[in-house]
């Protein structure tokens, strides 16, 4: 008897069961994780590839759609603009025609008014011209009469003035002669007076010459000599008058 006496005997398995057990033993959790990871990355790769393709297709499609849409919109806009142009031209032309018609009418009215005014001014000017011409003719006639009268009067006056001038000229000649004579007399008198004055002045000058020179010398020589310089002269003069001095001192 042994230790494994109570151990149940292993029942023999079928090949199917053995294959299932082998599979179960082979595909364990680690393998499953690896498979899961591989599958996830593969799936992501496929999704990314597919996304990129889809993105590319989508961009291409959007580009085409844009081109087509742009062309369509341009065509539509051209049509619309052409239509708007036509309508706008018509409307503007119509408005311009209306405006021109109104301007023409107003200009015509203004021209009529100006023409009327010019006509009236011309008539007024004509009338004034006629009045002035009549007045001028009258004035010329009056001036002619007046000038004739003045001329006659001046003729008489000129004759009188000429006569007066002759008289004045004669008087001036007489006065000039008188002045000439008087001038000669005054000249003689003046010469005589000047000679007399000169003689008086010279005489006065001569009479006062001594005092003048003395005054000059007194002013010029004052303080010029000190007593030492004068001493020889003083002693000489006292020597000359020595006797008189001595006699006076002895009295």
């Amino acid at each position: 008897m042994g230790l494994f006496q109570h151990k149940k005997p292993v029942e023999p398995k079928t090949p199917q069961e053995e294959a299932t057990d082998a599979v179960v033993n082979y595909i364990d959790e680690t393998f499953k994780d690896e498979l899961r990871t591989f599958g996830r990355s593969y799936f992501e790769k496929i999704i990314n590839d597919t996304g990129a393709l889809f993105q590319k297709d989508l961009n291409t499609t959007i580009g085409q759609v844009n081109v087509q849409l742009q062309a369509h919109v341009t065509q539509q806009l051209d049509v619309a603009i052409a239509q708007v142009n036509v309508e706008l031209k018509e409307r503007v032309a119509k408005q311009l025609e209306n405006q021109f018609a109104e301007y023409n009418r107003e200009m015509k009215d203004a021209q009529d008014l100006a023409l009327k005014s010019l006509t009236e001014n011309s008539e007024q000017l004509q009338a004034e011209y006629n009045d002035l011409r009549t007045m001028l003719q009258k004035n010329v006639a009056d001036q002619k009469v007046t000038l004739t009268n003045v001329f006659e009067e001046n003729k008489v006056r000129i004759a009188q003035m000429k006569e007066a001038q002759d008289l004045a000229l004669k008087s001036l000649n007489d006065s000039a002669e008188a002045l000439k004579t008087q001038y000669a007399e005054i000249n003689d008198t003046l010469k005589t007076n000047v000679a007399n004055q000169e003689a008086v002045l010279v005489s006065a000058f001569e009479n006062n010459m001594g005092k003048i020179i003395e005054h000059y010398l007194l002013g010029a020589l004052g303080d010029q000599y000190d007593l030492k310089a004068q001493l020889p002269s003083i002693i000489h003069q006292m020597d000359e008058n020595k006797q008189a001095i001595v006699d006076d001192m002895k009295l």
Partner: peptide
């Protein structure tokens, strides 16, 4: 101006330049 004017008890003696010019 110059010179001397001398006076003794009873006389004067003018030895001055002013006296000479006068």
């Amino acid at each position: 101006v110059a010179g001397v004017y001398l006076r003794t008890p009873n006389h004067v003696h003018d030895f001055s330049m002013r006296g000479a010019l006068e």
